[in-house]
Amino acid sequence: MGVMVGVLVWVFQNGNLSGLLGFTATGTLESSIPILMFCIVYGLSMAVAVLVDAVLIRGVLLPAFVRLAGSANWWAPRSLRRVHERFGISEAAPPVERRLATTPWTSGVTLLWADPLTAATAAGRAAGAASSES
């Protein structure tokens, strides 16, 4: 920031390089120029910080660290493991029950259910419909 102000004063206030750049030096600077320079420098520094964070840290360093750490990435503290066990939370997906189910609303068409909840719901509806017919 200090270098930018120094260059502005040297070029525009003192008139150095005025012949090369094609202007006449007035000996003063507009008072809003340093404020605008600060805003531009601050904005550019934020853009660079976000770019470094997004590309370097999240795109390069984090995946490399995850690869090096291996299974230690997924370690849980003992108290959190107890919560997982108590409520049945697991990293692995629950086994999917695959079976053929016939439902009364499909007109005898046999469907393959891949979702156990949907299959159980359909089986419950079929059982309820069969018991209401009796």
Rank of each mutant, 00 (worst) to 15 (best):
L17N: 02
P77T: 03
L17P: 00
S18N: 06
A76P: 05
V11D: 00
V41M: 12
V3D: 11
G88W: 01
T118F: 12
M37L: 13
R82M: 11
I33L: 11
A69N: 05
S32L: 03
H84F: 13
D53Y: 14
S132L: 15
A69Q: 04
A72T: 08
V5Y: 02
L62G: 03
G22K: 01
G70D: 00
D115I: 03
F87K: 14
V66M: 13
L8D: 04
N14T: 06
S134M: 14
V9W: 03
L20T: 13
E97I: 09
L20E: 14
V60I: 13
G43F: 10
L111F: 02
S79K: 14
S31G: 11
W10C: 05
R99L: 11
A49M: 13
C39G: 13
L21A: 12
S45M: 14
I35V: 12
R81D: 15
M1G: 13
L80Y: 05
D115M: 04
S107I: 11
W113L: 07
M37Y: 10
F38M: 05
I33V: 13
Q13A: 12
G19Q: 05
L44Q: 13
C39P: 02
G70H: 01
A126N: 02
M37H: 04
T28W: 03
S45N: 09
F65N: 13
